[in-house]
């Protein structure tokens, strides 16, 4: 299968995993390994503290030897997100940033206006921005204009495990931005949700809580990896179209005649 291309880098795995809320760092490491994930997101707001040197948790993440995508989770304004991104660049030595600007503290909806503003500042500053957005087509266009080369629309609000709330919107986004990598981020609860996202032609899926809070995060991570691979393969294989009428898969002519 073709590889996932993000800002000039190629990846075999189309699963991105968040690093929060695992029972322990070792469970996180095992989940990453079991799923063969090649990109993990890390939030640094709370973990920041006064110093970073020798932090065991970061050492562990770095020791996984995979790409780190820092995020600005928990930022409520463009300015806050920009500052956090700059901190992340220093700490993780990467210009990749998953940009989250939250507009509502209860529902955690993205603030798309603040997002576009922050994306403009960060892209101009040389960042490779991964914007966490809604399925809104116009916002996506504006993010492209600021220099984003990836889109990360939500499946559903963060942590809800509801799957894809608006398939129609995501399909529209896919067809409108045919060549832009689209990563479905947030709201994924089950491997079938992730598979569905991939069947729609998304390029990758990012999830966290569905794995971290599973009773067995390691096997759940594996299950998601399988779902994502299945969905991708199905998309590439050209699924049949649904029909209103039943269609037999065998010929009717040779059917046995059961009349007495």
């Amino acid at each position: 299968m073709t590889m996932l291309e993000l800002y000039g880098q190629s990846f075999n795995s189309r699963m991105l995993l968040g690093t929060a809320r695992y029972p322990s760092p070792s469970k996180l490491a095992k989940a990453v390994q079991a799923s063969k994930t090649e990109i993990v997101t890390v939030s640094l707001r709370r973990e920041a503290g006064s110093s970073y040197a020798g932090e065991k948790f970061w050492d562990l993440i770095k020791s996984l030897n995979i790409t780190i995508l820092p995020n600005t989770a928990g930022c409520y304004s463009a300015r806050e997100a920009v500052t956090t991104a700059q901190m992340a660049r220093e700490i993780f030595q990467t210009d990749w940033i998953k940009l989250e600007v939250i507009g509502d503290s209860e529902s955690l909806h993205p603030d798309t206006a603040g997002l576009v503003e922050a994306a403009r500042i960060l892209s101009a500053d040389g960042f490779k921005v991964f914007p966490y957005t809604t399925e809104d087509l116009v916002v996506a266009g504006k993010l492209m204009d600021t220099g984003c080369e990836v889109l990360m629309p939500w499946g559903a609000p963060i942590g809800t495990a509801r799957g894809l709330n608006n398939e129609y919107g995501l399909r529209t986004l896919r067809s409108r931005f045919e060549t832009i990598p689209i990563i479905i981020d947030a709201g994924i609860g089950l491997p079938s949700h992730a598979a569905r996202a991939m069947e729609l032609g998304s390029d990758a899926v990012l999830l966290n809580t569905a794995v971290a809070r599973a009773e067995n995060p390691v096997t759940m991570a594996e299950a998601f990896a399988e779902g994502i691979r299945a969905g991708r393969k199905a998309y590439l294989s050209g699924p049949m179209q649904p029909s209103d009428m039943p269609q037999t898969s065998t010929s009717l002519i040779d059917k046995a005649d059961l009349r007495e």
Binding site: P25, R46, E55, K56, F57
Partner: peptide
């Protein structure tokens, strides 16, 4: 529960 070995500083957050 914060992944940091900082022994002081109760943060506002």
């Amino acid at each position: 529960l914060i992944e940091n070995n900082e022994r002081t500083r109760f943060s506002v957050r």
